[in-house]
Amino acid sequence: MVAGRQSQRGRGVRAKIDRMDGESAVAQIGVADLPAQFGPSAVLLDVREDDEWSRGHAAEAQHIPMGDVPARLDEISRTATLYVVCKLGGRSAKVADFLARSGFEPINVNGGMTAWAEAGRPVVTDDGSPGSI
Rank of each mutant, 00 (worst) to 15 (best):
G4D: 13
Q6V: 15
Q8W: 14
G12N: 08
V13C: 12
R14T: 13
A15D: 10
A15W: 13
K16A: 11
I17A: 04
D18I: 02
R19S: 05
R19D: 05
M20G: 05
D21H: 06
V26L: 06
A27L: 07
V31K: 02
A32P: 00
L34R: 08
A36G: 08
Q37A: 02
Q37W: 00
F38G: 00
F38R: 03
G39F: 09
G39K: 04
G39T: 14
G39E: 08
G39H: 10
S41V: 01
L45K: 02
L45D: 00
V47S: 07
R48W: 00
D50T: 15
D50I: 14
D51Y: 10
E52F: 00
E52N: 06
E52H: 07
W53D: 02
S54H: 00
R55P: 00
R55F: 06
A59W: 14
E60W: 13
E60I: 10
P65Q: 14
D68I: 01
V69P: 03
P70W: 07
P70Q: 11
P70S: 14
A71P: 04
A71N: 13
R72I: 09
S77K: 01
S77I: 05
S77C: 12
R78Q: 06
R78C: 09
R78W: 06
A80K: 08
T81M: 08
T81Q: 09
K87E: 06
L88H: 13
G89K: 05
G89W: 14
G89F: 11
G89E: 13
R91C: 08
S92Y: 04
K94T: 07
V95R: 05
V95M: 08
V95S: 05
A96N: 06
L99P: 07
R101M: 15
F104P: 00
E105D: 10
P106G: 06
I107N: 07
V109L: 06
G112F: 02
M113H: 04
W116V: 03
G120M: 15
R121D: 06
T125Q: 14
G128K: 12
S129E: 03
S132M: 11
I133W: 09
